[in-house]
Computed example of a mutant assay.
Amino acid sequence: MRSPTFRKMAAPVDLELKKAFSELQVKMIDTQQKVKLADLQIEQLTHVQKHANLTHAEISTLGDNTRMYEGVGRMFILQSKDDITQQLKVKQKTAEEKIKELEQKKVYLERSVKEAEDNIREMLLSRRAQ
Rank of each mutant, 00 (worst) to 15 (best):
R2V: 09
S3V: 08
S3N: 14
P4V: 05
F6C: 03
F6Y: 13
R7I: 09
R7T: 00
R7Y: 01
R7K: 03
K8S: 12
M9D: 06
M9N: 01
M9G: 05
P12N: 02
D14M: 06
D14F: 02
L15Y: 04
L15D: 07
E16S: 14
L17R: 01
L17D: 02
L17P: 03
K18D: 13
K19Y: 00
K19H: 12
F21H: 02
F21W: 02
S22D: 11
S22V: 00
E23T: 05
E23R: 01
L24D: 12
L24M: 09
L24C: 09
Q25P: 01
Q25T: 05
Q25N: 06
V26P: 02
V26E: 12
K27M: 09
M28L: 09
M28Q: 14
D30Q: 12
D30T: 08
Q33L: 14
V35S: 04
V35Y: 02
V35C: 11
K36T: 04
K36M: 05
Q41F: 08
I42M: 13
I42Y: 03
I42R: 05
E43A: 13
E43R: 02
L45G: 06
L45H: 08
T46S: 15
T46A: 12
H47I: 04
H47F: 14
V48E: 06
V48P: 06
Q49I: 06
A52T: 09
T55H: 09
H56I: 02
E58L: 11
S60P: 00
S60Q: 13
G63Y: 03
G63I: 07
N65E: 10
T66S: 12
R67D: 07
Y69C: 07
G71V: 15
V72T: 10
R74P: 09
R74W: 01
R74S: 15
R74D: 15
F76D: 13
Q79P: 13
Q79M: 15
S80Y: 04
K81M: 10
D82W: 14
D82K: 14
D83C: 03
I84G: 10
Q87M: 15
L88D: 08
K89G: 14
K89I: 04
K89R: 08
K89F: 12
V90Y: 10
V90K: 11
V90P: 15
K91M: 10
Q92G: 13
Q92R: 11
K93T: 13
T94K: 14
T94H: 09
A95Y: 11
A95S: 13
E96V: 01
E96H: 10
E97G: 02
K98Y: 08
I99L: 00
I99K: 11
K100Y: 01
E101F: 07
E101A: 00
E101N: 09
L102S: 06
E103K: 15
E103P: 12
Q104K: 05
K105A: 10
E110A: 15
E110M: 13
V113T: 06
K114P: 05
K114Y: 07
K114A: 12
E115D: 04
A116F: 10
E117C: 15
D118S: 00
N119Y: 08
I120M: 08
R121K: 03
R121H: 01
R121I: 06
E122T: 04
E122A: 14
M123L: 07
L124P: 04
L124N: 00
L125R: 13
L125S: 08
L125H: 07
S126V: 05
R128M: 10
A129N: 11
Q130R: 01
